[in-house]
């Protein structure tokens, strides 16, 4: 299984020079295994995909964690949606009273976007999911709600013996940087358990978090503890804060490595980088 970071930035896209090392596009990760491909989130990173390749696939699957703008902003400009009869599946959480389709309609409708979702030429299938397990091609997918404002899913994706967990927006403990002692009380834990790769929110520093309580994002302390407790093999810090320049991200990573001596690899997710598991 291969995975490629197409968008790693949180909140809003940036073209600032200070963001170009790790990327300015918002959340999007591509998973592939031979003929099967999955797109995780549709932030502006989705615009970096090879549209020609996707327009010729038998089907396209886009898995959304939630519908905040930085995770769907690129969706309307994903050209394969406009290819007649191409089979496109969008998976994601619904609301308590409104469906996923209804929420997507609000984006795909004037004045925000000129083309209503019903007029997209592709053969669109919208799958509303919650805590669930399902299969797409060679991928076994488990989803669970995690703590973030509004309905938000985390994904655990298994391909053969390898597991990638993707939780780009997550505040596992609200108001405290110490996770509960028992694993079952930790949001997202079962998704992360023994994952080969964890791609996880790392929006705030330990020092900044107290002023951002309840905003739905992790501090460094949160993500480090979660990865350690869950026994992951490799952690990619993701959803980089657009207020942090890249050299600050690097300094923070150096501090983490010096102070924590974690038993797993920690890397900064880098736009354009592809890895194989």
């Amino acid at each position: 299984m291969k995975f490629k970071f197409l968008g790693t930035r949180g909140s809003y896209p940036s073209q600032k020079e200070e963001h170009l090392s790790y990327g300015g596009n918002t959340s999007c990760v591509e998973l592939s295994n031979h003929q099967h491909r999955l797109i995780l989130d549709a932030g502006t990173g989705i615009l970096g995909l090879d549209f020609e390749l996707y327009a010729n696939l038998p089907r396209i699957d886009i898995l959304l964690t939630h519908l905040h703008m930085d995770h769907i902003q690129g969706l309307a400009f994903f050209k394969p949606l406009f290819k007649k009869n191409l089979e496109v599946h969008i998976w994601g959480p619904g609301g308590t009273s409104n469906s996923l389709r209804s929420h997507l309609n609000r984006y795909f409708s004037p004045p925000l976007f000129p083309v209503p979702i019903r007029e997209l030429p592709c053969q669109l299938h919208i799958h509303e999911i919650s805590n669930s397990t399902f299969t797409i091609g060679a991928f076994e997918i488990t989803t669970a709600f995690v703590i973030h404002p509004g309905p938000t899913l985390g994904y655990r994706i298994k391909n053969g013996a390898k597991v990638i967990t993707y939780i780009p927006d997550h505040e596992p403990m609200v108001g405290s940087q110490k996770l509960y002692n028992k694993d079952k009380w930790v949001s997202g834990f079962s998704l992360c358990k023994n994952a080969d790769v964890l791609i996880h929110d790392s929006m705030y520093t330990k020092e900044e978090y107290p002023s951002k309580i309840g905003w739905g994002h992790s501090s460094t302390e949160h993500v480090i503890q979660l990865a350690r407790r869950a026994g992951v093999k490799q952690l990619f810090l993701f959803h980089h804060n657009p207020e942090y320049p890249d050299n600050f991200l690097e300094q923070r990573l150096d501090r983490i490595r010096q102070n924590h001596h974690e038993p797993y690899d920690i890397l900064l997710a880098t736009q354009g980088m592809e890895y194989e598991l």
Binding site: F145, I147, K184, S190
Partner: peptide
């Protein structure tokens, strides 16, 4: 091990 549902954790 199954984790608690998110609404239980938030409670």
């Amino acid at each position: 091990m199954a984790g608690s549902e998110i609404e239980i954790i938030l409670s």
